[in-house]
Design a protein around this nucleic acid. Structure first.
Lengths: 291, 291
DNA sequence: AGATAGACTCAGTTTTTCTATGCCTAGTTT
DNA sequence: AAACTAGGCATAGAAAAACTGAGTCTATCT
């Protein structure tokens, strides 16, 4: 009859969070990514929670983990709880510093779409403190401290700003050598390492026999490829909504008329109730489809 | 336009918990008590959260703290969130180790009421691993890892096992010298440092003029006072439901017939849905009013 | 005026958490 | 079949966070 040991301990909150993320995302690596730590850290936290519970919560497989029955029971409950916590934190931020707005965007969108519009935004809302973070994948707005996410996502999301269509684009000089799709074999075709399928997509509709036969450098950032195209370094698979300003300015031209939809759309998302300055900003950005 | 700084950080979970407890309980000291840390630790956590939010959440006063408007907004949200978290944790414990039951009880109840009943309980439910923690104040079952709390609380709570009535009690030998209340002036009157008002309460109904005139040692644990009374060391203000076994065994007697209700009741509480072994145990204990 | 309750600060220590590294396993590709 | 890859595991050391303890401070209460 142990009367002494002070109290039965609560499980560490961080371990619960790590488990919740791993359960929701289905893997330690993805959880680690969301929590901005290494997968090893998540593994340790989960192990700690399992030690506390006295039961394994995940079954370890070679390619990822699967929830045990106990884990399956608890996962959704924790998810709800952390959602509530996220709401509370968000309310705190909203109440304490409503003028501080964090925007997340993919690197390409941040540099090509948003960056040119920022000066105007700052002028329209001088009271706001806008900060912008570039990241590959859309953050989970329930969990991460962003107010707005601006990403290319599969069509159908609310607040769609523009559907994504692609077509080759290059500098005016280079365009003179391009009469028909087969001329692409003679120039560098710039590829982006994120949107790798773009060329194949367009070729499938326009010159299927060229698939896989184009050559050219690839870039880790789409904006770099765009820069290269502007400099006449090659033909880019252009996402219309991103390079529109450069086309209007005449620095890029479209050598071929055919455009192909990627099935994605540039879309704006936020937490459910956008109020105050955030709501204004959302409206402003939504209406901003043209330039 | 800061694009670099990895991500806007989430507030530390522990700071949120500390704030939530402080907001709910209305003070750092009480929060510290619930969290099993020192008040200084809570103060630091809260300060950390305030630093994160960029706004004070509490207004510091000489006698405790009061929530600022922002704090008032966020407090209830966090409370809800941590309630949900508590539910999830509780479900985890229930799912992982249903046979492990933690009981919290006040020291007096633990030693005098529960302890004698434990052997029988263990025999009735051999599969259960019962552990018992003694504490002064009832724990918050939503937050602390107890399955059952057994305390003297103001009457009206559900699962009341016995209403609390007091009357003097002493060893049979000592009782021979006690014919009328005024004889109490000639013997040590044992007092408990927790239930300090007991004597006054009884005297008020039976010999108001003696109030404050009785003398005798006081004990930090009621069970010590009981032991002393059994040994003939003085007259105890006896809580009937706690000393009943000793009275039945003839080791204590009641020298005066008058009994007074304290307005408290021994009651059993648990989290909402008691299921499985826990529910059985609850039933067993509830029905256990007599001995 | 003195006592008190409650919160604050700060330094030092303890505890927790994270990273870095290398290893292991089981699908997938060649 | 062999090599490759994705994802998890374990460990040690390093970094960060949390906690304690002691001494202060300041409005209320007596």
């Amino acid at each position: 009859m142990p009367v002494k040991p002070p109290r039965p301990p609560s499980p560490p909150l961080n371990a619960l969070r790590a488990f919740e993320a791993a359960a929701r995302l289905g893997g330690f690596t993805r959880a680690a990514d969301e929590l901005c730590v290494t997968p090893g850290a998540v593994a340790q936290q989960v192990k700690q929670l399992e030690a506390w519970a006295g039961e394994p919560l995940f079954e370890r497989r070679a390619h990822g983990v699967v929830l045990t029955p106990v884990g399956k029971t608890v996962g959704p409950l924790l998810e709800t709880a952390f959602d509530a916590l996220g709401d509370a934190v968000s309310a705190l931020r909203q109440a304490a510093t409503p003028q501080r707005i964090h925007i997340a965007a993919s690197p390409a969108v941040a540099q090509l779409w948003l960056s040119p519009r920022l000066p105007e935004l700052r002028q329209a809302y001088p009271a706001l403190e806008l900060s912008l973070t570039a990241m590959e994948h859309p953050p989970n707005l329930e969990r991460e401290q962003f107010d707005i996410a601006l990403f290319m996502v599969p069509e159908g999301a609310p607040h769609q700003i523009a559907t994504d269509v692609v077509r080759p684009a290059c500098s005016p000089q280079l365009a003179e050598n391009l009469r028909k799709p087969h001329d692409l074999l003679n120039v560098p075709c710039l590829a982006d390492s994120v949107w790798v399928g773009d060329w194949d997509l367009w070729l499938a509709q326009n010159a299927a026999d060229l698939t896989g036969r184009l050559r050219g450098p690839s870039y880790s950032l789409y904006a770099l490829a765009v820069q290269e195209a502007v400099n006449g370094g090659g033909v880019l698979m252009g996402h219309e909504c991103l390079i529109a300003p450069l086309v209007e300015a005449g620095r890029l031209v479209y050598p071929f008329p055919s455009l192909v939809a990627t099935g994605l759309a540039l879309s704006l998302s936020t937490r459910q109730p956008a109020v105050g300055p955030l709501a204004q900003l959302m409206d402003h950005l939504s209406s901003e489809s043209g330039f």
